[in-house]
Structure formats: C-alpha cells, structure tokens
C-alpha cells in the first residue's frame, strides 16, 4: 500500500509538467493550424497570427514551475498532498491550454478579415490564461504547506 501511495506522490510531482505539455501541444497545434489557414486567405499580417498561436505554450511553463515547487522527498505523509495538488493543477493547466488554443483559433479566424478587432478577439484567450494563472499561483502557495 505504501508503495502505491509513494507512486501517487511521484505522479503528482510530474503531472503539472506532463498535463501542461499535453494541453500546450493540443492548444498550439489547433491555433497554429488556424494561423496556417488564415495565411492562405490574407496577404499580410502573418506574424501576429503565428504569435497568437503560441499563446497556449505558457501552461507548459507554469507546469514546470509547479513541478519544481512540488519536487521534494516523497514520503507516505507528503505523497497524498503532492498527488492532489499536482494532478489537479495539471488538469487545470491542460484544459486551459486546450481551450485557449480554440479561443486563439477563433481570434485568428475572426481577425483575418477584420484586422481592427485583433486585440479584442484575443481577449477571451487572455481571460482563459487568467484562470491558468490562478491555478498556477495557488498550487505554488499550497506546495509551501505540504507536510514532509
């Protein structure tokens, strides 16, 4: 039983990085595909489409930082907390990256024919980013109080 609990602890440490990476992969791929499509339809402003499509990569970075904050000696006492904080923070980061990718794709699709709405169309993606930041910050705060 102890081994299983310890395994969960290790899972919790790496979960933010792995889940954040999965989310960033999907989010950036979707937004990137939309950016490529938009380039076929317009004659300029390609840079900002590619720039916007990279927005969901931040979740990966947050995941790495949370992983380092959780990285410590895994004991039967600390493992449950590591698992809970790591997995839940990872899931939050993963879903925020996936849906932020969808927001970025929509922003690219809308702003290609109406460049004047580019900033405003990126606002939903920024709001989604805000939720990822909340999950990230409070994971860091809670990681400081994990019993050793």
């Amino acid at each position: 039983m102890d081994v299983f609990i310890l395994a969960l602890g290790w899972l919790g440490i790496f979960a933010p990085t792995a889940l954040g990476a999965i989310g960033s992969i999907i989010g950036c791929a979707r937004a990137g595909q939309a950016a490529c499509g938009a380039m076929l339809d317009v004659d300029g402003g390609y840079g900002r489409f590619v720039g916007l499509s990279a927005l969901p990569s931040s979740q990966m970075i947050y995941g790495i930082v949370v992983m380092f904050s959780l990285n410590r000696e895994v004991t039967v006492t600390s493992a449950p907390a590591l698992f809970a904080i790591g997995v839940l923070a990872g899931l939050a980061l993963m879903f925020s990256a996936i849906y932020q990718g969808a927001c970025c794709a929509s922003a690219i699709n809308s702003s290609k024919s109406k460049p004047e709405i580019f900033g405003l169309s990126a606002a939903p993606a920024a709001i989604v980013e805000g939720f990822a930041v909340f999950a990230f910050v409070f994971a860091l705060v809670l990681s400081g109080g994990i019993p050793s």
């Binding site: 499509g37 996936i98 699709n109 809308s110």
Partner: peptide, 17 residues
C-alpha cells in the same frame, strides 16, 4: 470540442461569408 475531426486550417483558410 476535444473529440471529433476538426478542420482548423480549412475553416481559417475560407473567407468570411
């Protein structure tokens, strides 16, 4: 949104109606 086949490149390449 997560499941099913998506066409991000195709839809973004079509001019807005």
């Amino acid at each position: 949104m997560i499941g099913g086949r998506s066409y991000y490149t195709l839809i973004a390449s079509l001019p807005a109606l």
